[in-house]
């Protein structure tokens, strides 16, 4: 196919490319700036002299973060959490959304269940009741305290339920005619054709599990049990005059060696990389598994 290009459409192309490049640059620059800060010398950063390129290149901040085995221990806990928590989220979302996607005739009381779910999604008991529940169930200091409280992501359930409802009825009817039971239909028909939606919610729960740090802080009583984000969040070099009053000279010297600005930037980068690495693997599901062409009307 040959496109004849007039001068007008060419210049429009140039303009569009230019505008898109500019937007891409504006979006990426803060990230790049953070990277530049994380590799810079802290005296230069504190003087506001770093712009697009690291000044006084060094790896001090990364050394502070990656220095000892504690980082890797926390990393492994986080990976375990994401795998276990993601799997639990996935299974519960699917087996909950599937029956709820039936209509009221097949599943009486469906509306009540849905309202119940929506209620739970909008109102929560708050931090203290949640904490007390977790403690009383003896989940404190176990991996379960991080994955069980959020085991049913209601928002995801509603998303998947609606996706299931929008699938062509004929698909299921055909399966039933061929003698498939409900479980078989779910596993062989619904899940394969819903891959894009399932990939999306799985990504939600993976990102959610990876990024949350507060539950790690309140349910774990020893820093050695922290997941990665909690561990990183606790690695602060905070220059707070309030603290100067009580610091020992050793700590003051420690403070003067690193800067909160460079260290925080390095923390952002380190915490982001594993997630960035996951995206390409989920990418293929976003385009695959479309129902298109499965039914002729």
């Amino acid at each position: 196919m040959v496109l004849s290009k007039s001068w007008g459409s060419r210049s429009a192309d140039v303009f569009i490319y230019f505008a898109l490049t500019l937007i891409a640059f504006i979006s990426l620059f803060p990230l790049w700036y953070t990277i530049a800060l994380s590799f810079s010398d802290k005296a230069a950063v504190n003087a506001g002299r770093v712009f697009a390129w690291p000044v006084g290149f060094n790896l001090t901040s990364y050394k502070i973060i990656l220095q000892d085995h504690k980082f890797f221990a926390a990393f492994i806990i986080s990976v375990k959490r994401v795998l276990l928590g993601g799997a639990i989220n996935f299974v519960l979302t699917v087996i909950m959304a599937y029956p709820l996607a039936r209509d009221n005739k097949k599943f009486p009381g469906r509306t009540i269940y849905i309202w119940y779910l929506v209620f739970c999604m909008l109102f929560s008991g708050g931090l203290i009741p949640l904490y007390m529940t977790v403690t009383n169930l003896h989940l404190q200091n176990t991996l379960w305290s991080l994955v069980l409280p959020g085991a049913v992501p209601v928002f995801n359930v509603i998303l998947i339920m609606n996706f299931f409802r929008n699938l062509p009825k004929e698909l299921e009817e055909a399966a039933v005619v061929d003698g498939a039971g409900p479980l078989y239909t779910l596993l062989r028909i619904f899940i394969p054709v819903s891959m894009p939606a399932l990939a999306t919610v799985t990504l939600f729960s993976i990102v959610g599990h990876w990024n949350s740090f507060f539950d790690g802080l309140i349910y774990m009583n020893k820093p050695s049990m922290y997941p990665l984000q909690t561990y990183i969040q606790q690695l602060v070099v905070r220059i707070d005059p309030e603290l100067m009053k009580t610091l020992t000279s050793e700590q003051l010297i420690e403070l003067s060696k690193a800067s909160d600005k460079t260290l925080n930037s390095a923390k952002l980068i380190v915490a982001m990389i594993p997630l960035l690495a996951i995206y390409p693997f989920l990418q293929k599901y976003f385009v695959h598994g479309i129902v298109l062409g499965s039914v002729k009307e």
């Binding site: 802080l217 009583n221 969040q233």
Partner: peptide, 9 residues
Amino acid sequence: AWQVETADA
């Protein structure tokens, strides 16, 4: 009973 690393925590 429990230990944390920072004053904020």
